[in-house]
Amino acid sequence: MILLSPQMRTAVQRTLLPILVLLSAAIVVLGKADQLLFDSVRTAVSDTAAPVLDTLSRPLTAAGNVIDRVQMIITTYQENARLEAENQRLLQWQQTALNLAADNQRLRGLLKAVPDAAVSFVTARVIANSGGAFVRMILINAGTEDHIARGQAAVTGEGLVGRLTEVGDRAARVLLITDLNSRIPVTVESSHVNAVLAGDNSERPRLLYLPAPDGVKVGDRIVTSGEGGVFPPGLPVGVVGSLDAAGPRVEPYVELSQIGYVLVVDYGLSRSLPQPPQVMARSRTDASPPARTMR
């Protein structure tokens, strides 16, 4: 094309434009028809761009940390008073918890219960998120090189963030619990009623398939139910924030638009998720001891 005269080049570009428009439209339709068709391309592009995004996002993460710190300094006095009150309360809870732990251990011994599987986790930094109104995903700077696999849970200290849907060598994509395509089996902690937490791209996902709509009230804690075997039961998700006509909405514990880091946790359950062939070939099959890596 470099050898063509400007007029020729113009003519080529004029014909190229409608062809590429049609090609793009075809890709949109194909990508919709077969969701896995472009998965390997997507993973390859994410992997390639990961170092660049990692570098570019560093100052943003740092800026976020600075803002957090400034906010902390501003609120130090009130925060200290609040924490002291909370500490008093928690000390009482600690006694309760110790008693319960002792009870629990004794009863487990009586029942010969199987202990929970050891979990391993990897800390990863958020290097990209889906800009735009239609998708809720983040890209993290950890991949199969860090022994993470598709289907594992991404959490923060506060609660559930989402699920790994795509794992490359250096980067992985997390489908947030607020995304339109996210469906998480959950349970209302107080009443043990099961439901499905369904994202709709808004900040507060909805609770679907509740057996009785009045079985839930504002302020109820929502945790994962463990049904389907992807997440372990009891992972904190959020609290019921409002009761709309369309059903209850859940306020996630995690401020999803401000996550800087996530923990990718392997509960040893992710293999129960159907894996597309190209991801399965790469995923870890050996059971390695609990690992802790900081990126």
Binding site: S24, A25, I27, V28, G31, R42, V45, L53, V135, L139
Partner: peptide, 21 residues
């Protein structure tokens, strides 16, 4: 456009179509 779609995780081809149009 395709690169942006792939990185953002949005339906593939949408941004390519937008920029070309």
């Amino acid at each position: 456009g395709l690169t942006e779609d792939l990185l953002a995780g949005s339906p593939i081809g949408v941004n390519a179509l937008l920029l070309l149009l």
